[in-house]
Amino acid sequence: MENLLTLAISAILINNIVLSQFLGICPFLGVSRKKDSAIGMGLAVIFVIVGASILSYLLYHLVLDPLDIEYMNLISFILVIASFVQFTEMFIKKYSPSLYKSLGIYLPLITTNCAVLYVALANITSGYNFVEMITYSIAVPVGFMLVLIIFSYIRERLDIAPVPKAFKGNPVALIVAALMAIAFSGLAGLV
């Protein structure tokens, strides 16, 4: 249990997917202007990463490993993630229009999020068992969502702040992201 807690805290704070690993920067910068869209994107990323990680993990251990085609993991995981997102979007369109209205628009954007593929691959390369895989797959997108929401609050303030014209928009956002990364690096050694 302690090991799982350490794994979760490490994935959320210390080895944060955005600020420490520098993955998922595109949606981090693109969908962090407003906190509503940040929350929606964060929830959608959590769902996709958990689902895709489970499918990838099972695919690797039940198909790729027994057939000695482990080298197919990269292509297989990409196709599994893309197919999963398609099925998810289809399911939400049919059975939950309200959910589609709030989260559905982000699903195609998440397909190309490198953080999804990273988590699927890391679960294999790190040799996690099923419980550790679930813990890691939940913790990483929770860390992503946490940073995204914090960043959205800062960006909403930046929009009304007297930022020099040359720095308005993405330049000052990147500076803020760098400062956040420095702040989060101070958490190293916490666990």
Binding site: P97, G104, I105, L109
Partner: peptide
């Protein structure tokens, strides 16, 4: 679904 034909992601563009 109805009402979702013209949804826009609040995306600044990457």
């Amino acid at each position: 679904p109805e009402g979702c034909e013209s949804l826009q992601a609040a995306c600044d563009g990457c």
